[in-house]
Design a protein around this nucleic acid. Structure first.
Length: 516
RNA sequence: GGCCCUGUCGACUAAGGGUUCAGGUCGCGGCCCUCUCAAGGCCGAAAUACGAGUUCGAAUCUCGUCGGGGCUACCA
């Protein structure tokens, strides 16, 4: 089989949405599975929607996820502008390929597949409004084009004059009359559409000297020898046009195969997942943090504390499954297991809780060394006086409770700082006369323990308390309160063993002094 | 409105006409463990949108209805 070549072709109109990352991921997995190439192409034919920094964001997001393209981006993470052996189809930015497209648009006009149109946007908008008022649908196609201002209705001289003098004309595709376009989608199967429901799409804009998406996309996919197009479902309605364009160019025998992915839906209510949902429900919708021109900050998975492996994993499982009960996959495992046949056809509602669960699983898989590094990166100054062995011991004991590394400080702070205050409800509950008499005796016992390890302390404390018929719960909870300040944390003996005798005795003394 | 896609527990999904009074995971509830909080273990509630048809047999095939999504720009 020929080498598979797939592409991810986003527009730099803002930060890349997590749905876009998923599309990129599926392309990557599909290509890598068979040793194919993953290409990045920037579709920036609409200069009015260009957003500064968006292109860099896209590349950085892919890099963070570990799915950087083979072609289109250089080692420094820049879009390639000059052809080379590794990047033969450069430039990979459509705005820099403007010289390429015109000949293809002209070809279509010369061979009767397209025509020049001189209607203004205002005229067409007015016609659409009028049609709507009459509860009709205005479609620019064979039924209406003969009454409109275009090269089909004007004489050749007039057309030439307008082409030379006017600056706002377009080239439109001449959608055939009453034809069934028969298409295949790798996920959805066979699809048929009647061309009567389609309109004469604009392929070229004189004002910009640039093609629109449809033309640029087909031409570039062909020129870049793309074999498979995996893209979002929003492109499905354009598929007949794309088929017809391949046919018009005579490329139908080498046209790519298509797969249209369903969209990501909001966690609740109706509609597709949007930035608003993230703000409203408290989760990121974008891979990385983004600050727009107005200084408005949008949160990202990376900055929210997600591991890229977890993010990739959760994205992969949103609309695909391996057919087994396995849910945790490395990128390599995904590459081996992935198949378009197992991509789900219906839209996937995003579930933030499950996203957190994925991160928790990845946090648990981290080695102690990795976790210590994560933890120090977040809490450096507070940990200055503690060595890796101590920090690692604390984290090993507590990591099971965290979904994110940033939660670890709240979970473990009492190992690094003695409590400054004591939870009032717990004090009222446990610090009673009976216990006030017992605690000093426990302190005396602790002071005399020769081997201050977990098992010795655990057994010793239990024997001491039950031997004296003291109330186990009250005594232990009081000790916990004195050591931690609140009613939470690991086992008392575990804590004592890690903190050491001096620290334990000092915390007990402080608490007694403070609470009286 | 028109066109296209789509419809299994609250969510992600499995089951490709009989092996299914529908399985797993997240979430939810309960119990156990226990010095607290977690974690863990065990158990539980929870779905084939609806209606016809095909068939000995339908979650699975067909049609209709309803729901959801997308497109309907000189945006991508």
């Amino acid at each position: 089989m020929e080498k598979r070549r797939v592409r991810f072709a986003p527009s730099p109109t803002g930060p890349l949405h997590m749905g876009g990352v998923r599309t990129a991921l599926y392309n990557y997995l599909y290509a890598k599975q068979v040793g194919g190439d993953f290409i990045l192409r920037i579709e920036d034919t609409d200069s009015t929607r260009f957003v500064e920094g968006a292109e860099e964001y896209i590349i950085e997001a892919l890099r963070w996820c570990g799915i950087l393209p083979d072609e289109g981006v250089d080692a420094d993470g820049r879009i390639v502008e000059t052809p080379s052996e590794k990047h033969p189809h450069a430039p990979y930015r459509q705005s820099q390929r403007r010289g390429i497209y015109r000949q293809y648009a002209d070809y279509l006009v010369e061979h009767g597949f397209a025509y020049y149109a001189f209607d203004t946007a205002e005229e067409l908008a007015a016609m659409r409004a009028e049609a709507e008022a009459q509860k009709r649908t205005f479609t620019y196609n064979w039924q209406t084009r003969t009454q409109l201002r275009n090269s089909l209705t004007m004489d050749a001289a007039e057309v030439q004059r307008r082409l030379a003098e006017e600056n706002n004309w377009t080239i439109r595709f001449k959608m055939p009359e009453d034809r069934i376009v028969s298409m295949d989608d790798m996920i959805r199967g066979h699809i048929e559409v009647n061309t009567n429901t389609l309109d004469d799409k604009v392929l070229w804009k004189k004002a910009d000297e640039l093609p629109t998406y449809h033309l640029a996309n087909i031409v570039d996919d062909h020129l870049m020898e793309v074999t498979d197009v995996i893209r979002g479902e929003e492109w499905l309605p354009s598929l007949p046009l794309h088929y017809l364009l391949y046919e018009a160019f005579g490329w139908q025998d080498v046209q790519p195969r298509f797969a249209h992915l369903s969209l990501l839906l909001k966690p609740d209510g109706k509609g597709k997942l949007s930035k608003r949902d993230g703000d409203r429900l408290g989760f990121p919708v974008f891979p990385l943090k983004w600050v727009n021109a107005e200084g408005e900050v949008t949160r990202g998975y990376r900055e929210d504390g997600y591991y890229p492996e977890a993010f990739v994993n959760l994205l992969a499982m949103l609309g695909w499954n391996p057919g087994t009960e396995q849910e945790l996959f490395t990128l390599d495992e995904l590459t081996k297991a992935f198949s378009l046949e197992r991509v789900v056809k219906s839209g996937a509602r995003f579930n933030p809780d499950k996203a957190k669960w994925f991160n928790q699983e990845y946090l648990r898989q981290r080695t102690t060394e990795q976790l210590v590094a994560d933890f120090r990166a977040l809490n450096g100054d507070k940990l200055a006086g503690f060595d890796d062995k101590f920090v690692g011991g604390v984290l090993d004991m507590m990591k099971e409770r965290a979904h994110f590394a940033f939660e670890l400080w709240d979970l473990t702070s009492f190992f690094f700082e003695a409590p400054q205050s004591y939870d009032e409800a717990s004090v009222n509950k446990f610090w009673k006369d009976e216990v006030k008499e017992i605690i000093p005796q426990v302190r005396t016992y602790l002071e005399g323990v020769a081997s201050f390890d977990k098992d010795t302390l655990e057994n010793g404390l239990h024997e001491l308390i039950s031997g004296n018929e003291w109330p186990m719960g009250k005594v232990m909870n009081t000790l916990r309160l004195f050591l931690v300040g609140v009613s939470k944390g690991p086992g008392i003996a575990d804590m004592m063993a890690i903190l050491g005798k001096q620290e334990i005795l000092s915390r007990i003394d402080n608490a007694i002094a403070k609470l009286g």
